[in-house]
Amino acid sequence: MTFEWKYVDHALPFLLEGTLITVAVSLLAVALGLLVGILVVLGRQSRFRALRAFIAGYISIVRGTPLFIQILIVYYALPGLGLDLPRFESGVIALSLNSGAYISEMIRGGLMAIPKGQLDAARAVGMPNRLIWRRITLPQVLVLILPPLTMEFTGLLKSSALLSVIGIVELTRRAQEVIGETLRSPEVWLATAALYFIMCFTLGTVTRRLEKAAAVYRL
């Protein structure tokens, strides 16, 4: 059989629409994931043992079970608990909860990477804690987590493919729809893979540049 690439031409607009959804979902998920990550880091320092235990449990579950299962659970199981969300929101939430656990580790890592000596120096000149956080810690943490955050975004672009299973019309789902119409599955899958590759490879280059820039902060 020969590859008939003209079908790719025909399919491309649909695939590109799917790409937009892929990017949208991933952006939302990384933003919400950042929020979740911050809450987790704060929550871990709470006085309430129940909260700390809950957070530890949440992280365990998210890191110990497949993302695929997490997506299915959020979509199919939450209605049982009274929270019936449309598919797009379910997908974003599942991805955010997953990312949040990993992002919280990045934030923790970023905080630890700031040499304690800098905080000592700030305290020695009489800076109040609020100011130390705002002028010393936060700016450095934000810069330090930018590379891993970008990597997480790239990971989300790939993970979003799983959302096809719950019917969200991102790139993979679009590919499946186009194949349903044209029955040219090899060409479409290769084109789809190429689109993901272009996105992720470009982001990978950006991440590497960011890492070099962030290294200046690290001594």
Binding site: S159, A161, Y196
Partner: peptide, 14 residues
């Protein structure tokens, strides 16, 4: 730089 799911599809269909 590609999703695992898409790799599976490529191997299975292509």
């Amino acid at each position: 730089d590609t999703p695992f799911l898409v790799q599976v599809f490529v191997i299975y269909f292509v």
